[in-house]
Amino acid sequence: MAITEDEARKVAHLARIAVKDADLPALAQELNGILHFMEQLNEVDVEGVEPMTGVEPMRLKRRQDIVTDGEMQELILKNAPDAREGFFAVPKVVE
């Protein structure tokens, strides 16, 4: 599988990273190099093997579905690039 310039543009957009058109050929080439390296995996017989999800065969911990934390609006907003009136502020989303 080879990534074209168009596909590179699509991946960059999915990843929400702005890439200039002029940089797309180099990006596509780099991604292709890495994907080519990954294609070695096709040599492995994985018939009947379950994909590994965790290293320990343990069930994820459960806890009571109750509030254990909170009431820290100020701390949460403290690092925001733009916070107003107790909220995170972003550019206009709906016209």
Binding site: L35, L41, M52
Partner: peptide, 17 residues
């Protein structure tokens, strides 16, 4: 591509373990 790359890699990971 999820199956071709990601799931295959997780299966290979199981074999490595």
């Amino acid at each position: 591509f999820y199956d071709a790359y990601y799931n295959r890699a997780r299966k290979v990971r199981a074999l490595i373990k």
